[in-house]
């Protein structure tokens, strides 16, 4: 049962296409498993589409501003549009579509089917520390890092916090922290103020996005801080 969902504002930005690819992918993965959010996304899309394509009322500002196109600009635009139409319709072919292939990934001898949103993204080789395995997804978004994180049964990430944000979408399995249990499909977005210590009894695979290295907060685990950037 999915209990954690993206906030309304996040869904709105997703529909508008304004999020970085990594976050848009996280929402897409969640929505694939969550009929409730699918429904909200469909509604929001319909609304924003309706709004985008209604006739723009002519405002007084437009008439005064420099951006108001002159008569000759209009003619130039008409010509441009005419040539676009003939270019586009010159070829009668329609795109052939096929069933999306399912891409699989293996972590520690367990095979997982990846969500469609991840089907074409380059995946780095897995790096392992103890019960954790992590593969970077090559999205090239500077300080934002996206990965697949696999936790073997009984493993966990020591208590840590982030300077930035940390998104976890559970692709398979479950984990728990002090706030409770998280299951397949849950969308968990934490900001830098929250400290947690996720543990996975039966193992799990997560899609993670973070914009800064994690910072371990407890006792001996502080020694792990140099590898904080390893995990997320």
């Amino acid at each position: 049962m999915i209990k954690h969902h993206p906030k309304f504002e996040l869904l709105q930005s997703y529909v508008n296409g304004e999020l970085p690819a990594s976050l848009a992918i996280g929402i897409s993965i969640h929505a694939d498993m969550c009929p409730e959010c699918q429904h909200s996304i469909a509604q929001l899309t319909e609304q924003v589409a309706e709004h985008s394509f209604e006739e723009a009322p002519v405002r007084l500002d437009d008439l005064k501003s420099d951006s108001f196109t002159s008569f000759s600009d209009d003619i130039a635009e008409d010509d441009l549009f005419e040539s676009m139409i003939s270019n586009i319709t010159f070829n009668d072919d329609a795109d052939v579509v096929t069933e999306a292939l399912k891409r699989e990934v293996v972590f520690r001898d367990k095979t997982y089917e990846l969500p469609t949103a991840l089907s074409r993204i380059e995946l780095g080789k897995a790096a392992n520390i103890g019960k954790l395995s992590r593969s970077r997804l090559q999205l090239n978004e500077d300080e934002i890092h996206s990965s697949l994180l696999h936790i073997n049964p009984g493993g966990g990430v020591p208590a840590h916090t982030h300077k930035g944000f940390e998104l976890t979408v559970l692709l398979d399995g479950s984990f728990t922290d002090s706030r409770g249990e998280y299951n397949k499909g849950d969308f968990i977005l934490l900001d830098g103020t929250f400290t947690h210590n996720p543990v996975s009894q039966n193992g799990c695979l997560c899609y993670t996005v973070a914009n800064d290295a994690l910072h371990f907060t407890q006792g001996i685990n502080k020694l792990l801080n140099p590898i904080g950037s390893f995990i997320y």
């Binding site: 096929t98 069933e99 999306a100």
Partner: peptide, 21 residues
């Protein structure tokens, strides 16, 4: 990536874009 994130038709991909790499 957009068509993988927001599919235009469900469960379908355009052939020429599929798994180029």
């Amino acid at each position: 990536l957009s068509d993988d994130i927001w599919p235009i038709a469900e469960g379908a991909v355009t052939e020429d874009q599929a798994y180029e790499d």
